[in-house]
Amino acid sequence: MSTQATPGKYGFLIDVTHCIDCRACNVACSVENNVSMDSTRIWMNGTGVVGEFPELSSSTAPFHCMHCNDPSCVSACTVGALTRDHDGIVQYDDDRCIGCRYCIYACPFQVPNMDLDEKMPLIVKCDMCGDRLQEGEQPACAATCPPGAIQFGRREDMLAKAHQLITDHPDKFIQHVYGEHENGGTSTFYVSPVPFEELGFPMTSSTSSAYLNRLVTHGTPAVFGAAAISLSGIYLTIKNVKEESAEEARIAAQTAVVQAAEGAAAETAAIEAEESTSEEA
């Protein structure tokens, strides 16, 4: 199966040196996208206050869907609720979603989240404010950012600008454009004065886990029903384990993702074995 790793049309450039943690982006997103009071499409990552008084530093950055070139969530979604559109925007269709949460575990950036108090929790994630794009407006977060930390434009321009910034100001930025190669490349680029691990950004492989996921989700159309049943089992297990608050769920999800990444190969091998068995049958 071929990869889908063509770069998208649009991109974000987020300059961590400019972010003031005011959260105008968070509020603007919640209003624009009618997000429930109990979940969010965008949140703040940060270093916290580092050091000992008075030698202190602190950096923050908003975080939302990276819009990967080859999104792990799309490949993990068994029902086509998550798709990557022709502009490279990762879209979510709640009519198709069955609440399996595979995308949550597949995403190396821990982006999709849901309100666990809901009986039928739906996924909450950024879609680049598609309605605004159609009206020629910037996404709500970028449009409102008071210090101009979030920029939005053509992906290639944003990437070029990111490189320009770190090249022109080696004293100000570490020499790493986060999002350029992470998970095989994305449409969201960060430049930062501190290493991204310190900001709490997930450290991912430079290749997308989507290929492995596709082996599972696209390679088993004949046994879709069986897969759905096994997924339901997993869903119920997860549901029992994870009836915590949304915040705790996020932390738990981080752990799960690390484990998932480690265990992905083994799991895939196991399912492939099952697949060949059923084909024989």
Partner: peptide, 24 residues
């Protein structure tokens, strides 16, 4: 359903802070 900063206004220049965004 949404408030955006007025680009023509010298105090907002198209932007609003979190409080402004939350006004509705």
């Amino acid at each position: 359903v949404k408030l955006d900063g007025n680009p023509d206004h010298p105090h907002s220049r198209g932007k609003l802070c979190p409080r402004g965004q939350s006004g509705l």
